[in-house]
Amino acid sequence: MNSKILYTVFLACVFGVGCNHKMEKRQASGMFETREVVVSSEISGRVERLEVMEGDYVEAGKVVGLIDTMQLHWLKVQAQQAAVAVNERIPNLDKILEVYRLKVERGEKELARVERLLAGKAATQKQYDDVKAMVDEGRSALEGQTHQAEVMIAGAKAESAAIALKVDQVNDQIRRCLITNPVSGVVLAKYTEEQELAAPVKALYKIGDMKNMYLQVYVEGFQANRLKVGDSVKVFAQLGGGEEREYQGRISWIASDAEFVPKTVHTQDERDNLVYAVKIHVENDGVLRVGMYGDVKFDTL
């Protein structure tokens, strides 16, 4: 009986030491996560096309959908027609002033002729004064018409520029109707179907960069002091059923501020209530999933 008890204690000690040895190698544990982006429409309207399905891999920059642009199209056509009408109203300065310039030129020639006649005493001073008054009047009319025409042209050009700006704004809105995928990754969830109404605050789908996974763990203060960004670590992904796979990871971020131990995190020293979050970058070989558990062995600890 005593030998049986001693044998049981011996097995407990052996397996206990083995477990503690394993825990010493795995200094922290956490769950895998990835960068997730929720994609929304920039314009309100009906979803005419949305070519994404959950599980699809989509490259960054690919146009995957379209919001109805019909109303914006008619606004653009209306603005373009208004621009044509305004441009047709812009007067031709040379044509407007041509009549006044010819009148001034004829008057100046007549004034020069009368001035020669006056010098030869073949014309009176009154004749000269009458012609000069007519020339001065023509010059004044030319200046007035020039100023008025320049004001009209400036106003028409300003109106045309405002309409052109309106066209540019409508073109920008039409461009925003295109739903462009922002990051390369896998579609994690689809929230909207075609022919449904979209709005800037309404999510269309969620995409995640599944090639670059991050394991977030928590370490105690004395451990954080020995770690630095860029350190290589060993990551053991828990695949379930007691199976695990080892990956090479690299520390990408260490929190600068301590926080209280989350309820789901257990530290070796329960008296230490403050821990530091650490993110470890791991390249996914297609096995890792969001929410999967993983353990970490820090090479520097």
Rank of each mutant, 00 (worst) to 15 (best):
F260W: 12
E194G: 01
V63Q: 15
A60S: 15
D272M: 06
M31E: 14
Q148S: 10
T34L: 00
L227M: 12
K95G: 00
E246Y: 00
M1S: 13
Y191L: 01
I254W: 01
N2W: 10
G185H: 07
S41G: 04
V287W: 02
I254H: 02
Q248K: 06
M23W: 13
Q125M: 08
T146F: 12
E246Q: 12
K228F: 03
H73A: 14
I280A: 07
R245Q: 14
L301C: 03
D94E: 15
S256T: 11
T180L: 06
K132W: 03
S252K: 06
E108T: 10
T124E: 06
V63D: 02
R176A: 10
K211S: 14
R106A: 12
A156Y: 09
E24F: 09
K95A: 04
I96P: 01
V47S: 08
K109Q: 11
A255C: 05
G291N: 09
A133F: 08
G291F: 13
E42A: 14
V219I: 10
T180V: 15
L239Q: 06
G120N: 15
V217S: 04
L111C: 03
E159N: 09
L117W: 05
F15Y: 13
K126V: 02
R116M: 06
V99S: 14
R106S: 11
K25C: 07
A83D: 06
T192E: 10
K190Q: 08
V282C: 00
V261C: 04
V290I: 10
R139H: 13
E220Y: 02
V282W: 00
Y57D: 03
E42W: 04
G138Q: 06
H281T: 07
A189L: 10
V287Y: 07
Q248G: 12
V235H: 00
V186T: 13
R49K: 15
M70L: 08
E115V: 06
E110V: 01
R89Q: 12
D269S: 09
M23E: 14
E259C: 04
H147A: 15
N87V: 03
Q78I: 08
G120M: 11
A28M: 05
